[in-house]
Design a protein around this nucleic acid. Structure first.
Length: 856
DNA sequence: GCAAGGTC
């Protein structure tokens, strides 16, 4: 499998590249642990060090160099002459040449890669296992291959930085997937072209044409458009319009309360609200006239409130906004700093379930010394307390990072801001909550009847707070109501008809906005906050003290403008469609590649079809050689040649097959006197005489080699020869001396060619004559020689044939253990072999001898 | 002066 090394015991040099320095270090630590650790040295870039250690990959001794990039190594931009804003019509940006290049601040990393890869044999890419990671893999590959085109390039696929996973991935390397990388290239190019064209267009069109007095004098205004920022603006504008268009409507409802010695209960009308005043008054008066309430139903049940799922990035941002009013952008900045300092795990993750390998107890153990939540952590670890519960699985896994959790204890660092303290505390409390029992409450609901109208009240007593003790961001309302018995009657303390007006929904909060983006696939967990911030920077929206967003006049004007044109550029569908379409192209290409590989595997079918219409050429060029080496029908089917079709063939499938012994057949211009305008099928046409030439050895001695005949049915010579030699056609059932068996996988029938050769002329096969079928492991040579050339014509060893096949992919993989070919021995002792011409698998004839063998 | 996506 692996190549390029110097072989034997001498180690080869392997360059390993990770997506970020922390991963490079972790992987180096894991892989070098058994060999006594790694050496570390500086690279050209001060962030990206190089780690060195020895390791063995599949028996090959390797000297490993492990370094990293920092995300994308390259950027995409237009060619120089299109970069200036006035250099071209923005419409030209849809065709302008673009190029990928390593920007200035990444040149140091590029130099490290170039220098290190020069001396290496292999390159192993340890990028994140997502489409962006695959794209970065090719950026690294391009840089390295430019200085060393002998590199053998591999991709390590891993989903977590844990020992087992990393060792497994390096022992099972795969090739990088260009199609996935191309999908990202396509998305990047689309983003650039539409972003730049619309941005230049609307900026140059509008900026100086209006008095935009909300701007600072010195601020250079850009009216940007982007496929993520505009839909984000769209969410804000749409909610704003919903509020604007809301028309308050008056409604009425009846409320009832009952105060007794052991508390007060507030009953709600089970009709909810009525928008008709007269109706409400009539019902209310009925109640007032007969105000005695009768208890109809009392329900008491235990309710559980579950702790949240393990923490993903979007949840972190939403909850930080909700609980502390910290903006998503600030949250990510602070979380990044906490991560850099080692206090929390990687903050950009979609994963909301812990891997079974995570030592959750150890994480809790670290926190027992904290003065606020330490005692709770201690109780969690105490089996007697019965507080522990394995975390729920939120159902998302980005296969790259675990949920956000604390990685180091801190009682607060001196350089931490309030936000650092809040976020660290939140991450810890969230984690502790995840491994805790749900809160338990006792819920009571009471239904009463007053003059035929139903009312209900409910109360809840918390029996056990459990996770809520440490997760005090969430509350679980606990009002207690008096005890009631069914049938009990009482006079309400108050019974009122109250009016109200409907209210519009609130403006979108940051948490709502993140939810909308997450739901519609706008941006990624790592970029959503950027898009929100961009709207504020561009003066498209504002955020109030309650973290609620309103569009500015500018933002609303842009949306109205495009909406008026009929373009929903501000709706989320465009972005979703781009993402799904580029992935679809990638999927389609992958599908077609699989289809191609399968078609190549089954090329015998194409030969079969071609042979119906054409004679095989004798040109055995390289291409042909390689095409035919695994396909027996190609070589052994020379005798299946002639048929005469309807003038409408192949639309009309009516054909007449000629004797198998035919070596030449030429249609003459003479019309048969007997058959004339013979009705061959629905398509009437004249029947022309045919000049035949038969192979001497294949026809009885009393027949002529040259024969002018008619296929219309009047020619007794042709009828005789077909009777004697067969036609060679696999779908003419009247032929004699032919044998077909059905593949037990695909059901296709396959004629055994031996039946039509000179040696078998006139021989009748019967199932009984094939009872002695034996299976052997010989390859197609057997069939080829049996079919045409005579045995032993071109024998290859079964080992080499087997190796040829293993190179192919598809359904035959994993069948190596099955006898590769089948040899049937007839009663006379002659072997005949066959393999399915549809699916190509010889093993599919395994049961043919008993079940599907037919003699025609 | 433009996008969105990585990450430091």
């Amino acid at each position: 499998m692996f190549s390029g090394g110097s072989g034997g015991g001498r180690p080869i040099r392997v360059l390993n590249v990770a997506e970020k320095p922390s991963v490079a270090k972790s992987v180096a630590e894991i892989l070098s642990r058994r060999g006594g650790g790694f050496r570390s040295r500086e690279g050209r870039s001060r962030y990206n060090r190089v780690f060195e250690f020895d390791y063995t990959i599949r028996g090959q001794a390797c000297h490993m160099l492990m370094t990293s990039v920092t995300g994308h190594l390259m950027e995409l931009d237009f060619d120089e002459r299109y970069r200036r804003w006035h250099s071209c019509d923005p419409a030209d940006l849809y065709n302008a040449p673009v190029r990928k290049y390593v920007p200035q601040d990444k040149l140091d990393i590029k130099r490290t890669l170039e220098e290190e890869s020069r001396s290496c044999h292999w390159l192993i890419l340890w990028l994140d296992c997502d489409t962006e990671g695959e794209n970065i893999a090719f950026e690294v590959l391009d840089v390295c291959a430019a200085v060393n085109n002998h590199l053998d390039v591999w991709r390590a696929r891993f989903s977590a930085l844990i020992d087992r996973e990393i060792h497994q991935s390096v022992q099972n390397l795969v090739r990088p997937n260009k199609l996935l990388a191309d999908a990202v290239d396509a998305r990047q190019e689309i983003d650039l072209r539409i972003g730049a064209s619309f941005t230049r267009f609307q900026t140059m069109l509008l900026k100086d044409a209006f008095v935009l007095d909300f701007l600072d004098e010195d601020r250079n205004l850009v009216l940007s458009y982007g496929p993520c920022q505009f839909p984000t603006l769209g969410f804000i504008v749409e909610r704003y319009w919903e509020i604007q268009s809301h028309e308050p409507e008056e409604f009425w409802t009846i409320n009832c309360s009952h105060m007794s010695d052991n508390g007060t209960a507030a009953f709600n009308w089970m009709r909810g609200r009525l928008f008709d005043y007269t109706c409400s008054v009539i019902i209310y008066e009925m109640c007032v006239e007969q105000p005695i309430a009768t208890v109809k139903n009392v329900k008491q049940q235990q309710k559980l409130k579950y702790p949240p799922f393990p923490l993903s990035t979007v949840e972190l941002q939403k909850r930080a906004s909700r609980y502390f009013r910290i903006s998503s952008e600030r949250t990510m900045k602070v979380a990044e700093e906490l991560y850099q300092a080692g206090f929390i795990s990687y903050p950009r993750t979609e994963t909301d379930s812990f891997s079974v390998n995570t030592d959750l107890h150890a994480i809790v153990q670290e926190q027992v010394a904290h003065r606020e939540w330490g005692a709770y952590a201690q109780r969690l670890l105490d089996p007697e307390a019965r507080l522990w519960r394995n975390p729920q699985n939120g159902g998302h896994d980005d296969k790259a990072h675990p949920p956000i959790h604390p990685t180091k204890f801190s009682s607060g660092e001196s350089n931490w801001s309030e936000d650092h303290k809040r976020l660290y505390g939140f991450v810890v409390r969230h984690f502790l909550a995840c491994v805790s029992q749900p809160a338990v409450g006792a819920e009571t609901s009471v239904e009463i009847d007053i003059a035929g109208e139903q009312f209900s009240a409910s109360g809840r007593a918390i029996i056990s707070k459990n996770y809520l003790e440490v997760y005090h961001f969430e509350t679980w309302g606990g009002s207690i109501i008096p005890t009631y018995d069914i049938g009990q009657q009482f006079l309400p303390t108050t019974l009122t008809l109250d009016s109200g007006v409907t209210r519009p929904p609130p403006l979108l909060s940051e948490s709502d906005l993140l939810s909308c983006m997450d739901k519609e696939g706008i941006g990624t967990d790592a970029t959503m906050h950027d898009h929100i911030k961009k709207l504020l920077d561009r003066c498209y929206a504002t955020k109030d003290a309650n973290t609620r967003f309103s569009p500015t006049n500018l933002g609303e004007a842009l949306v109205i403008g495009y909406d008026g044109m009929g373009y929903e550029l501000w709706k989320p569908y465009l972005r979703s469609k781009m993402e799904s379409d580029t992935k679809e192209v990638c999927r389609l290409l992958q599908q077609m590649k699989a289809c191609f590989l399968d078609a190549r595997q089954n090329k015998g079918k194409l030969f079969q079809a071609m042979e119906i219409f054409f004679e095989r050429s004798n040109r055995a060029g390289d291409t042909q050689q390689s095409l035919t080496e695994n396909v027996c029908p190609a070589k052994c089917a020379k005798r299946w040649q002639f048929m005469v079709g309807c003038i409408r063939f192949p639309q009309c499938r009516n054909v007449v097959w000629l004797p198998g012994a035919t070596s030449e057949a030429t249609v003459t211009s003479n019309i048969c006197n007997t058959c004339g305008q013979y009705l061959l099928c629905l398509h009437v046409g004249p029947v022309f005489m045919i000049q035949f030439k038969f192979r001497r050895l294949e026809i009885p001695a009393n027949y002529e080699v040259n024969h002018l005949g008619c296929i219309g049915g009047c020619d007794s010579v042709l009828r005789d020869l077909i009777e004697i030699c067969g036609t060679g056609s696999r779908n003419l059932s009247s032929a004699t001396g032919r044998l077909s068996i059905a593949c037990d996988n695909c059901g296709a029938t396959c004629a055994l060619r031996t039946a039509n050769t000179a040696n078998n002329r006139g021989r009748k096969f019967t199932p009984a004559s094939l009872k002695n079928a034996i299976f052997s492991s010989t390859w197609e040579d057997e069939l080829e020689s049996a079919g045409t050339e005579g045995r032993g014509a071109s024998h290859r060893s079964s080992r080499s044939s087997s190796a040829n096949r293993r190179g192919g992919q598809g359904r035959r993989q994993g069948r190596e253990a099955v006898n590769a070919d089948v040899t049937f021995v007839t009663a006379t002792g002659d072997p005949v072999s066959g393999r399915c011409y549809v699916c190509g698998d010889p093993s599919h004839f395994a049961n043919a001898a008993q079940t599907d063998l037919r003699s025609k």
